[in-house]
C-alpha cells in the first residue's frame, strides 16, 4: 500500500464504513498523487462507490480519515469541493431542466468554469443542450454530467463508472478528455468496471475486494499477479516437456502448446532448447487477466 501524503489530492488512513452489521469499507489506506490517473477496480459491492461517497463527504466515516488536498473530506467538504468535480455512475439530474440549464446551474454552483472548453465539450460529445433532461437517454444524461465535470477544470476529477451508457465513439472521446486532463496536471480517480479503459488510461491501479484494498501498483508492478502466456509452434508434433515449477502446459493444436508461466521464463526456454521451433510468442497478462486471476484465486480459496 502507498504511504499517505497529507496534502495529496486523495489520502485516506484506516478509512472504514459500516452500515449496520455490513462492513462496506475496511481500513482503507490510499494515496493518490497529484497529476496521476488512478484506476479503482472491484466487482459490484466491493466498496468503490462507498469510497467515493466518503471522499465527497456525502457519507460519514465509521472510523479512519479521508482527506482531499489535506482537507477533511467531511468537515471541510465545502472547501474541498471547490477543487473537485464528480461524475456519478447513475446520472441523477433534474428532469425538468434543459441540458443547457443543468450545465449552467452546475457550473454556477461549482464557481469556476471554462466556458469555451464547455462549449467545445458539448460539440465533441454531440450533446443537444436544448433538450430537457427528462427526454435524454441515459447515455446523453451521462454526457451532461461529464461535460459539467470536465468543464470545471477541477484539480481532482472523481469519476464513478463515468462511461456507463456511452457508445464506443463517445467512450473514445472520454478517454481523450482524460488524457488532456492528465496533460494539464489534473488528478483523476477513475472507478470503473471497464478494464480496457483503466488499462489504457491509468498510471496506477488499486483492486478492492470486499471493502479491502488487496492490490495496488502500476500495471507493470502487477504483472506478477498473473501468468505470462507463451505459445509455441513446433516443426513436428508437440513434444512432452518435463514438469517445471510454476509452468502449466496445455495443447492448442497438433503441433502447438501454450505455457502459462508464473515467475521467470528461463527454465521453460531452456527446456524447449532441444526441440525444433517454428514460432514462439510471449504475451504479458492484461489487466483483465490480472483482475480475473485475483478473483479466481479468491473463489478457489472460498471453495476450499
Amino acid at each position: 500500500m502507498s504511504t499517505p501524503d497529507a496534502d495529496a489530492p486523495i489520502a485516506t488512513t484506516g478509512l472504514t464504513k459500516r452500515y449496520g452489521a455490513t462492513v462496506a469499507l475496511d481500513s482503507l489506506d490510499l494515496s493518490v498523487r497529484a497529476g496521476e490517473v488512478y484506476g479503482y477496480l472491484g466487482p459490484n459491492g466491493a466498496g468503490k462507490t462507498t469510497t467515493i461517497r466518503l471522499l465527497l463527504g456525502l457519507h460519514r466515516a465509521s472510523a479512519g480519515q479521508a482527506r482531499l488536498f489535506g482537507l477533511d473530506a467531511f468537515a471541510d467538504a465545502l472547501s474541498a469541493h471547490r477543487r473537485v468535480a464528480y461524475v456519478a455512475g447513475e446520472p441523477y439530474l433534474w428532469p425538468s431542466l434543459s441540458a443547457e440549464d443543468t450545465l449552467r446551474y452546475l457550473g454556477r454552483l461549482h464557481g469556476s468554469i471554462d466556458v469555451a472548453y464547455r462549449d467545445q465539450l458539448v460539440r465533441r460529445f454531440e450533446l443537444d443542450v436544448a433538450k430537457k433532461v427528462r427526454s435524454l437517454s441515459k447515455g446523453n444524461r451521462q454526457k451532461v454530467q461529464l461535460v459539467a465535470a470536465l468543464a470545471t477544470r477541477a484539480d481532482l476529477l472523481l469519476l464513478d463508472e463515468p462511461t456507463a451508457g456511452l457508445d464506443p465513439l463517445m467512450e473514445m472521446e472520454f478517454r481523450a478528455c482524460v488524457q488532456e486532463a492528465r496533460e494539464r496536471g489534473q488528478t483523476v480517480f477513475l472507478s470503473s468496471h471497464i478494464l480496457s479503459e483503466v488499462e489504457a488510461l491509468c498510471d496506477r491501479v488499486g483492486i478492492l475486494r470486499r471493502g479491502r484494498l488487496v492490490e495496488e501498483g502500476t500495471l507493470a508492478e502487477m504483472r506478477h499477479l498473473a501468468a505470462v502466456s507463451v505459445e509455441v509452434t513446433f516443426a513436428g508434433p508437440a513434444p512432452m516437456i518435463p514438469a517445471l515449477a510454476g509452468v502449466t502446459a496445455s495443447s492448442v493444436g497438433p503441433n502447438a502448446a501454450r505455457f502459462e508461466v508464473h515467475g521467470p521464463v528461463g527454465p521453460l526456454i531452456a527446456a524447449l532448447g532441444g526441440h525444433e521451433i517454428v514460432s514462439l510468442t510471449s504475451r504479458e497478462p492484461s489487466l483483465e487477466e490480472i483482475f480475473l486471476n485475483q478473483y479466481d484465486d479468491e473463489t478457489r480459496r472460498r471453495d476450499g
Binding site: 465527497l56 469541493h81 473537485v84 441523477y92 433534474w94 454552483l109
Partner: peptide, 14 residues
C-alpha cells in the same frame, strides 16, 4: 431519494 441531492452536494454547496 432520487439522488439528485448527491449531485448537488458534490458541488461546493453546504
Amino acid at each position: 431519494a432520487d439522488q439528485a441531492l448527491e449531485t448537488l452536494l458534490a458541488q461546493p454547496v453546504d
